[in-house]
């Protein structure tokens, strides 16, 4: 996740790089499972009592206590939970009684789809805007863009979602989710407003990083050389600077992947979309620990995996590193 080991790794070939990143990722994931497991267990009080509420009979509490395996030593509990999780078994939801894995599998696709579309929206908004801003740095458009960026980060996505509903409720569907089997337009039209609501804030971050990357890139010597050769500004920006600026941008996209997933859960609740958001929020309120633990663990694993992918893909995108690895 950090930048420095990554940069250090750049010089040392893909295999070494993947191994090093893999080891670091493994440590993080192991730590994350411990954290997710302990969250429920270090809090004073019986999780079974908390889940069933104050009115539940002692017998019922005792039963759930045993069913959740809470009477065994902590290490034993962690180990069997971890082994089961590795086999895709995250236990059963207390409130819905279904297997957690099945519940998450039904909904995670929807949440991921919103996050991916929001990412696309943010790229479409931010990349051209950052090119304009960096090309005419300090001009009115650039300076107003910086204010818009702050607003983009400051405006809560779920509030923007409500404003979008107010503005577009007569034109676009504002509630629910239509599977692809309902038709392509039905499907996508339900995703437009959620993706824009979530993507706008993300666009602000992408814009900021890409703009700085572009400005740093065009101060490099190769750009001076290119200019001396009479290559057009347009070509310098689109062909040379953008490519170099995009590397840190991709890192930021990776770092922000988890926030897009979290944000998607919030935005879903506004549009009454049946994704992970509503499921997890209900689970938190009901203190449905297996479901909360499962949902959090799955989100963290996705987040970490995306970052690993981003780190490794860095080597494939940057021609300088690619050449070094081949030769």
């Amino acid at each position: 996740m950090t930048f420095r080991p990554l940069v250090r790794a750049l010089g040392q070939g893909l295999a070494w790089r993947v191994t090093a990143k893999g080891a670091q990722t493994a440590i993080v994931l192991l730590g994350a499972t411990v954290a997710v497991f302990l969250m429920v267990h270090v809090v004073p009080g019986d999780p079974a009592r908390a889940a069933l509420g104050a009115q539940a009979s002692p017998q019922a509490v005792q039963e759930l206590h045993q069913q959740l395996g809470l009477d065994r030593p902590l290490m034993v509990q962690y180990w069997s939970w971890l082994v089961a999780a590795l086999h895709g078994d995250l236990g059963n939801s207390i409130m819905l009684t279904d297997p957690v894995t099945a519940l998450l599998a039904q909904r995670i696709g929807v949440t991921a789809e919103i996050a991916v579309f929001a990412l696309l929206v943010s790229l479409v908004l931010a990349i051209p805007a950052s090119l304009v801003s960096a090309r005419w740095r300090g001009a009115i458009a650039d300076r107003s863009a910086r204010v818009i960026v702050l607003a983009g980060i400051a405006i809560p996505s779920f509030w923007l979602a409500l404003l979008l509903i107010l503005a577009f409720h007569s034109v676009l569907p504002v509630f629910g989710y239509a599977p692809l089997s309902d038709g392509i337009w039905e499907h996508f039209s339900h995703l437009i407003l959620p993706s824009v609501a979530l993507g706008a804030g993300h666009a602000a971050l992408v814009f900021e990083i890409n703009r700085i990357g572009l400005i740093e890139a065009i101060q490099q010597e190769y750009v001076r050389t290119a200019r001396a050769h009479g290559i057009s500004e347009r070509r310098i920006f689109l062909r040379y600077a953008l490519r170099n600026a995009f590397l840190p941008t991709i890192t930021v996209i990776g770092v922000q992947a988890g926030y897009l997933l979290g944000g998607a859960m919030l935005v879903e609740t506004v549009f009454a979309i049946p994704g992970m958001g509503r499921l997890l929020i209900n689970a938190v309120t009901a203190r449905d620990y297996p479901l909360v633990q499962g949902g959090v663990l799955v989100t963290v694993v996705i987040f970490v995996a995306v970052n690993l992918l981003v780190d490794v893909s860095y080597a494939l995108i940057d021609p300088r590193i690619r050449r070094r690895i081949r030769g």
Partner: peptide, 21 residues
């Protein structure tokens, strides 16, 4: 590193489920 692997909102969901709303 482990802390950074948890998106803030998701970490909050987990902790609030343990601590109560």
């Amino acid at each position: 590193d482990v802390g950074l692997a948890f998106p803030t909102l998701v970490l909050s969901l987990a902790l609030i489920s343990a601590l109560g709303v």
